[in-house]
Amino acid sequence: MYQTDMYEGMLAETVTIHGANGDVINAYFARPLGPGPFPGMVVIHHMPGWDEWYREATRKFAHHGYAAISPNLYYRAGHGTPEDVAARVRAEGGVPDDQAVGDIEGAMKFLRSLPYINGKVGVFGTCSGGRHAYLAACRTQGFDAAVDCWGGRVVMSPEELTPKQPVAPIDYTPNLSCPLLGLFGEEDRNPTPEQVARHEEELKKYNKVYEFHMYPGAGHGFFYYDRPNYRQAQAVDGWKKIFAFLEKYLSTPTSSA
């Protein structure tokens, strides 16, 4: 808990990491100053791109005591403004799921290689990043908590499957390796409340540890303060739920004397 006489400091910079297939990609990394130990967070950007909101979110996690890294999943599409790069990726049908999972796993391994990590790493994403967070939590080992904020296309019809997205993420639910927090809006159309309910049924079926919260009066992307879909009350509550959830599963237990 923050006290006004506490020292605060942060390091934030662009780094390179090894992603899928050993490819070198760039990432944005932020951590508190000091010896730690700190829990780690992989912060997965959305379809609008590896943009300013995600650099801010990475620093937000660092501000709250996490060593946080946001890999650029669009690195291979070239460089330019986040909007231009995202447009190229969207025109190509997104990044392949296997590649995204490999990049996320690489970010997780980067965090685990650091001497000041407390041994626990979570994964967070919104929109397509929420979908990728769920995929990574199901398809890799090493995450201790996952946060999916309104990730669409977790539930997919056979007609929606593509060579880049050949398996619906919900079909990997038996392999979910850590507790899951999901935040959703009642007015969202991707995912719809019905799709969220279908996802919840599958989590219950396999006895997974999860918390889902559905917000009235909110649609897709209600955290994004720079967009018309921002919903202040729901966003503030959502962030509180995220940090309470992560504290529960990623904090270092205090030893009793």
Rank of each mutant, 00 (worst) to 15 (best):
Q3W: 11
M6R: 05
Y7E: 12
T14Y: 11
V15W: 05
T16H: 13
V24K: 12
N26C: 14
F29L: 14
A30G: 08
A30H: 10
A30W: 09
A30T: 09
A30P: 07
A30N: 07
P32N: 06
P35N: 09
G36R: 08
P37E: 13
F38P: 00
M41C: 09
V43I: 13
H45T: 08
M47L: 15
P48K: 01
G49P: 10
W50N: 04
W50D: 01
D51I: 13
Y54E: 07
T58A: 03
R59W: 05
R59C: 14
A62H: 04
Y66G: 04
A67T: 11
A68P: 02
S70R: 01
N72A: 12
Y75C: 10
R76S: 05
R76F: 05
R76C: 01
H79V: 12
G80K: 10
T81E: 11
T81R: 07
R88L: 14
R88F: 08
R90P: 00
V101T: 04
G102Q: 01
D103M: 05
D103H: 09
I104L: 11
E105K: 13
G106K: 02
F110N: 10
F110K: 02
L111N: 03
L111G: 01
R112L: 15
R112S: 10
P115V: 09
Y116S: 11
G119D: 07
G119E: 05
K120A: 10
V121H: 04
G125L: 03
T126L: 14
T126Q: 15
T126P: 03
G130L: 03
H132N: 12
A136W: 03
A136H: 01
R139H: 10
R139P: 11
Q141R: 12
G142A: 07
D144K: 02
D144T: 05
D144L: 09
V147T: 03
G152Q: 11
G152E: 07
E160R: 06
E160D: 15
Q165L: 11
P166D: 03
A168Y: 14
Y172C: 13
T173D: 02
P174R: 06
N175I: 06
C178K: 00
P179L: 04
L181V: 08
G182Q: 00
F184W: 13
G185P: 06
D188H: 11
R189E: 15
R189T: 12
P193K: 00
P193Q: 02
A197S: 13
R198H: 11
H199W: 15
H199M: 15
E200C: 06
E202Y: 02
V209L: 07
V209R: 04
Y210E: 10
M214G: 04
P216S: 14
P216I: 07
G217H: 03
A218C: 08
G219V: 02
F222H: 02
F223Y: 10
D226E: 15
R227Q: 14
R227D: 09
W239D: 00
K240V: 07
K240E: 11
K240Q: 14
K240D: 13
A244I: 10
E247K: 07
E247G: 15
K248H: 14
L250P: 05
P253N: 01
S256E: 14
